[in-house]
Design a protein around this nucleic acid. Structure first.
Length: 553
RNA sequence: GGGCCCUUAGCUCAACGGAUAGAGCAUCGGACUUCUAAUCCGAUUGUUGGGAGUUCGAUUCUCCCAGGGCCCGCCA
């Protein structure tokens, strides 16, 4: 895993030292910003717990190990170090390290914070995947944001990632949708129509029916079956377009739109069934075909083909995973809502029964979002057509605010979204704190360029000028690759929103206390470089989070 | 009956097994003639739901208990 920046180089020297001493690799070093108390009392900028980690591994004393590590750090890396407490290793930045950090950023600005993996995995991240029988509603919003950013993080971490949307355009729900549409179509043509029982009553079905009637009144002459086929196709097309627009509105993009009907067309359901059958994992009971998921730890076996001959949803999942593997993905990630947690075990079971490693299938479950409007929870029912669409909320609150709000929390915790509050007080959303920091830095650069100043010319002399506030900010900039890797490895976007707030906070604080332009030329150059490095780093993080980086606010 | 998640400051939430548990909001008090005050600085706020265990060290890991949310179909 090639290093992504200065801290990775520094970490490599520690790792190498232990390798030589013990003849065994203790793994990569992880870094964090020095806690406030340490920063103030000891003037340290960064800290690592590597001595503890390694001491456990080598059954030795962490404090002694910390001293050994300290001695192994080459002077050329430009940090002063100290051992504290039972084995903390603290680092203070100096001119040479400041220079190295800045050079990392300016060498490849757009790629700063990104990694290269020696063995990049082919990752398929599937998320959102709303039913095509209605617009994307709020229930899908968290999964959409979470999946998108998780994919971005894995990509930045050095993997090959494909973002996939699964269009569930097959089965009884779509039949019901088509029948509902048929009623609306006839209604629009002024014909007698009976709305199907349990049909989709939402206004959007009426609108699609009207568009179908306006564009294709000639279908009315078709035999019932053909008419239904046309309307079904038309309706699905309209819904797919609507879903795409909704995702565009949030700035969420997909690499692949995959439909269930193509699974059917290519016979993957059948192939999965045969493969499981050959493995001896299927057996008939009560007229249905069962998958022996208990062989892999599930608490009961699961039906794959129902007694009426129809496959279950689970069967399609199996076929889909097979299809993904055969497309060359060696890591499959699905983002699911909390109501799906019961399906994790059986899917992993089937995945193994197909001959794959359970660890190569990751099923991410995020917890529920409850939406409140005027003090009451907004309940959603697609059948009755009572729901708030994601489009409506995006329009009311803004895409950046909704993304940040949904991302800035652990997926394990339930989330209450107060829509009235969000509409009124959207300015208190922390996304604006972060974006404002970007804007401020950008405006300094703009002004500097107008004054004919060069940005990014780094030499050791200007780097001498940095004091505690600058070192603090530099340390955060140096930590960005680390934070991105951590967020990616744990698949937790909220770690990165948290870091973006800290990074921005350090900048705001620095900006307030330090004049950048119009000071002594050398100092001006030093500070300008820092501002620009910060702006680049934050910009990359905003991009990963799917947020815009505004040049003005 | 079983499963997943949660319980941390007045409220909403953070905290790869690490140092004095942190932010925002709220409350109170300060700071703009400058590169954007959507900002900054300070004050106040804790028996991390309860108990036991593991260890140099536990909010974090294990077990027990209490409370809350969600799920347990030959629906998708």
């Amino acid at each position: 895993m090639p290093g992504a920046g200065y801290l990775q180089a520094l970490g490599a020297s520690l790792r190498e030292a232990l390798q030589q001493q013990f003849g065994q690799d203790a793994g990569p070093v992880s870094w964090e910003a020095a806690p406030a108390s340490v920063r103030e009392a000891r003037h340290a900028d960064l800290t690592c717990h590597y001595a503890f980690h390694a001491a456990k591994l080598f059954h030795t004393n962490p404090r002694e190990l910390a001293y050994a590590l300290q001695a192994a750090i080459p002077d050329s890396l430009g940090v002063s170090t100290e051992v504290a407490g039972p084995g903390f290793l603290n680092f203070s930045l100096e001119a040479a390290s400041a220079k190295a950090i800045l050079r990392d950023v300016f060498q490849n600005p757009a790629g700063y914070g990104h990694w290269q993996q020696k063995q990049a995995r082919q990752v398929n991240v599937e998320f959102c995947s709303a039913n095509p029988t209605g617009p994307i509603h709020l229930g899908n919003a968290r999964g959409a944001c979470f999946g998108f950013v998780a994919a971005n993080l894995l990509e930045a971490w050095g993997h090959k990632v494909s973002r996939e949307y699964y269009f569930d355009d097959f089965g009884t729900q779509v039949d019901t949708f088509a029948l509902s549409l048929l009623a609306r179509y006839r209604e629009a043509l002024g014909q007698e129509s009976v709305f199907p029982e349990g049909g989709y009553q939402g206004e959007y079905v009426r609108e699609i029916g009207q568009r179908a009637a306006q564009g294709h009144f000639e279908w009315a002459g078709l035999p019932f079956k053909n008419l239904l086929v046309e309307l079904r196709r038309f309706g699905l097309q309209e819904m797919a377009r609507a879903h795409r627009q909704t995702m565009d509105g949030l700035g969420i993009r997909f690499d692949t739109w995959f439909s269930q009907s193509s699974l059917e067309r290519d016979g993957f359901l059948r192939r999965a069934q045969v493969q499981l059958e050959d493995g001896g994992f299927l057996y008939p009971r009560d007229g249905a075909l069962w998958f022996r998921s208990t062989a892999f730890g599930d608490d009961k076996d699961r039906v794959m083909i129902r007694s009426n001959g129809e496959p279950t949803y689970f069967a399609w999942d199996i076929a889909y995973n097979l299809h993904k593997r055969e497309r060359g993905f060696d890591w499959i990630i699905d983002v699911w809502g909390p109501d799906h947690h019961g399906y994790v075990m059986r899917n992993k079971a089937a995945f193994q029964a197909l001959g794959y490693n359970a660890d190569d299938l990751t099923l991410l479950i995020y917890q529920l979002v409850r939406w409140f409007e005027q003090g009451e929870e907004v309940k959603m029912s697609k059948r009755t057509g009572e729901f708030l669409t994601l489009d409506e909320v995006t329009e009311a609150i803004g895409r950046d605010a909704i993304l940040f709000f949904l991302l800035d929390r652990s997926p394990d915790s339930t989330l209450d979204f107060n829509l009235d509050l969000a509409r009124q007080q959207s300015l208190s959303n922390p996304v604006f704190y972060v974006q404002y920091a970007y804007t401020r830095a950008f405006s300094v650069e703009r002004e500097a360029i107008q004054r004919g100043l060069a940005i990014g010319e780094i030499d050791l002399e200007t780097c001498q000028a940095y004091g505690p506030a600058e070192h603090r900010l530099l340390a955060k900039i140096a930590l960005a690759p680390e934070e991105i890797a951590t967020a990616a490895a744990s698949l937790l976007p909220h770690r990165l929103t948290g870091f973006s707030k800290e990074l921005s906070g350090d900048f705001h604080s620095f900006y307030h206390d330090h004049r950048i332009l119009g000071v002594d030329a050398s100092l001006q150059q030093a500070r300008l470089n820092l501002v620009s490095a910060f702006r680049i780093t934050l910009g990359n993080i905003l991009t990963l989070l799917g947020l815009s980086a505004p040049e003005t606010m």
